[in-house]
Amino acid sequence: MAFIPSYWRETPQRYRYEGNKCIKCECKHDSKCDCETGQVFFPPRRTCCPWCDCTLEPCTIATTGKLLTYTIIVVPPTQFGDEAPYALGICEMDDGARLTAQIVDVPLDKLEIGMPVRIEFRKIQQDGHAGILMYGYKVVPNS
């Protein structure tokens, strides 16, 4: 039950895919970081990087993008035991936001780096047979 408050606090990003965007990059440390105006962060960050104080505003990330890389989870955490083996990937969405998500609705041997994906709303896990159900985003092939 202790995780309920933290899960609840993250609902804007889990349910509505809310990140944030640098609207005016004022970073003075070009050699140290690669942030720039317009960059979208997901999950939302407090600052673009440790060296600057740019203005960030909330935004909803794009729901379509492509698969950058993935791995296959064969020995999963207990609550995902019934799903193994399953794929976990990093995707770059059309607005540049990157997110880590489970990749579903595709056979593992059909996964390809660069494949178009889109976000779908899914159940992520449940707290046993009587606890709460936790929802959020996964990605599926965009076909």
């Binding site: 799903e83 579903v104 609705d105 779908e120 709303f121 899914r122 159940k123 992520i124 159900l133 929802y135």
Partner: peptide
């Protein structure tokens, strides 16, 4: 439905 799909997930998708 897949194990990660239920009335809530399908409703959210249709409503979107």
């Amino acid at each position: 439905p897949s194990p990660d799909q239920d009335v809530i997930t399908m409703t959210v998708e249709a409503a979107r």
